[in-house]
Design a protein around this nucleic acid. Sequence first.
DNA 1: AACGTTAAACAAT
DNA 2: ATTGTTTAACGTT
Length: 429
Amino acid sequence: MDYSYDSRHFNSMQISPDQGDPKPHTPSQSESVPLPMDLPDTVPFSVHDWARWKSQPAFYSSPRQYAGYGSPRDSDAEPRSWNQLPQEFMGEPTGYPDQYRPHLAIPMADTSEALPSHSECQCHPGWPVMDSGHEFKSQTYDFATHLDPIQPLQSSPPSPLSEISSYHSPQSLAAASPSMTAHSTDRLSPRLSTAEQKQERSGHLPYSALIYNALKAAPGNKLPLQGIYNWFQENTDKGADPSEKGWQNSIRHNLSMNAGFEAVKEEPKPGEKPVNLWRLTPEAIRKGCIESTTRYRKLQNQRKAQYAANRAPQRQSTGKGNHTMKVVKSRSANSPHGERNDAFHQQIMTEEYGPTSLPSMQQYMQRPMGTVVGCTSMVPDTNAVFLDPPAPTFAMGNGLPGWYPTESGSNRVQDQPEYMIHGQYNHER
DNA sequence: AACGTTAAACAAT
DNA sequence: ATTGTTTAACGTT
């Protein structure tokens, strides 16, 4: 069984007679942007990749080289949540640059990234890993600036919104790169329903890995929250029930809690409403992996031993709601973020972030996990900050196994949990 | 014990 | 209402 998001998979999805895609794709002119012909056969990130990534480091590249998947069925007539984005985010329908035209930008951007360069993944020394095509210079980084030039649209598409919604679809890939269909060998059974395929492809990956996939495939490795939602709806079995909002909550939770993701504000035009995007940090891109979202508990446990005592509660119940009793459990002593009161971090806040209109604590807590690496200010036009932890106080990890590489790289564990290998993780209850 | 998920409180917009 | 942050709790491994 193979869960790969595979270009061949998408190609065969397109050509399979039982695919049941109700809206056959009609390649638009804009999709005829030439693609490099040497796309690896298997590029994206999958459950199986995770397993192999752990078990066969010698000849498997880290899951950073995923290009070639996005919305498997979004087509021209089916704009989804992208069209909820403000126009300034989507860009002028006929103008450019528009870094959010994924079908134009992604294949080239990520393909170039997929070219081997024989570097090593920091998470897994010795393992071949593809260098990021992105450069992070002078403490600033803007993935979009490293994308290949975006060509203006040659003619009006059926709908400008469809340009967005056809987000890097496999159809567009196939249309743009016919050679990719030459040796189509679907690694997913075509007998599976679309929902089943989604489930197989992503159902066993944790949220953080799925978000990583979504962002990794996105132009500039960034998406608005709605775009992430949309990706989940298109590529996972989550969100099948539109009335169910828990998965969205989980996504937001993961975005907030995982240091591999960071929020960035973009202001397309002066004076207009800024757009919040979620982006992979350079660290995450460079390593091609995402650390455990719940690793803050490590810090929590560490600090339990260090700081036994009395800190003021950071949040108390206001008395609203039905579960006011849930709160008060003296968690201040166990707070994973006690270090924010340290002088060192006070310094960071004042010197690096500086005064802003946003609450400084909220800004700082954007990366609450101690190690501030690859953070960028929420304030536009402000240089990003890259700090290394100066003291073991901020070291991540506790030496215990985990399937995510650790940020420091010193605690990496090559074991693959059974539930990741066999997809047995079951959180139903 | 660590992890991923889910629910929820809460704040900001 | 949406977005983002944080904590708590639960089930699984």
